[in-house]
């Protein structure tokens, strides 16, 4: 591989010029990439930050394509932009949209360390850049249609033949990291401490570990109303107090009480609008409706 590289570099001298189109594209995409990187650092919102980084990655991918490395360019877009940044976004969205940057420092000496490391990295980069600009000759134009010219086949040969061992080592590292993450994050829901299954929960309910074996009754759905504000009726026609919601504004207890008082005073037959059964149907003294109404109202008050 070494000899090949030097050979390629030796050939370079002749046509190491940059075409106009490439130069124009570079001067458009380069600033966009740098701007994206800077905005990524300075954006307050984490999701905005991620999006600026996406912009940088996209323009890098396009730069690769311009330099006759379409495989590398598309891989950059698919892997980094499409998969890795999407996972980042996924996590950021889970965290919540209000979680902007906090200026509170939790790690001691973080700024100092960051400054030292940042200057160090900048120095390394600057050194490499100056060397690249001064000493290394530009690579010749490549032909991505052939394996020798930077096509996928040539890349495959480099990865899977010349540099097979480092490649496998890297993949082993990645797999170890993935397995480690799964081991650390995995909770066994079948163990005693883990979550109870649906069946366990049902049995626990019937053993009396919970308030009641069944879920609370839903709101009533009748021919005249399907609003969640309409309470459910019990078989005897009285209101099921558990079906009244504290949250729904349209059923304040007072409003309900007034309605029911009005209904109780009007001695009518079965009425689908009535929230109680036929008035005094099975009662001896005729005040049954009032008592049930009072009881239910009391229940709602208790809930409220």
């Amino acid at each position: 591989m070494r000899t090949e590289t030097s050979l390629v570099l030796a050939q370079a001298g002749a046509d190491a010029t940059v075409s106009t189109g490439e130069a124009v594209a570079f001067w458009i995409l380069g600033p966009i990439a740098v701007a994206g990187a800077l905005c990524m650092i300075f954006a307050r919102n984490a999701v905005h930050s991620a999006l600026w980084l996406v912009m940088t990655m996209l323009s890098l991918g396009m730069l690769y394509m311009l330099q006759q490395a379409p495989f590398l360019g598309f891989t950059q877009i698919i892997v980094y932009t499409g998969a890795i940044m999407m996972l980042f976004l996924f996590v950021l969205m889970m965290v919540g949209r209000e979680s902007s940057d906090s200026v509170l420092e939790v790690l001691r000496g973080q700024r100092l360390m960051a400054a030292v490391l940042g200057i160090g990295v900048a120095g390394v980069l600057a050194g490499a850049l100056t060397r690249a600009l001064a000493e290394v000759p530009a690579a010749p134009a490549m032909n991505p249609w052939t394996p020798e010219g930077g096509g996928a086949g040539g890349l495959a040969r480099v990865i899977f033949q010349d540099y097979l061992f480092p490649f496998e080592l890297t993949s082993a590292l990645l797999i170890t990291a993935a397995v480690g993450a799964m081991v650390l994050a995995f909770t066994d829901r079948h163990s005693k401490q883990g979550r109870r299954s649906q069946r366990d929960l049902v049995e626990a309910r019937f053993r009396g570990e919970y308030e009641r074996p069944s879920p609370k009754p839903g709101p009533g759905v009748y021919a005249t109303s399907n609003s969640v504000a309409t309470p459910a009726l019990l078989p005897d026609g009285s209101i099921a107090p558990e079906s009244l919601s504290d949250l729904i504004e349209s059923t304040p207890t007072a409003q309900l009480q007034a309605h029911r008082k009005q209904l109780a005073s009007r001695a009518a037959g079965p009425d689908t609008h009535a929230l109680v059964g036929p008035d005094g149907a099975g009662d001896d003294d005729g005040t049954g409706a009032d008592t049930t109404a009072g009881g239910a109202a009391k229940a709602t008050e208790d809930k409220a």
Partner: peptide, 25 residues
């Protein structure tokens, strides 16, 4: 016509999701 035009379609699909995800967020 690209030597890797298959990847162009895949890349397009992977960028398109951003629209949905960001729209939702």
């Amino acid at each position: 016509e690209l030597p890797v035009s298959v990847l162009l379609v895949l890349a397009g699909a992977s960028i398109g999701v951003y629209g949905i995800v960001l729209g939702g967020w």
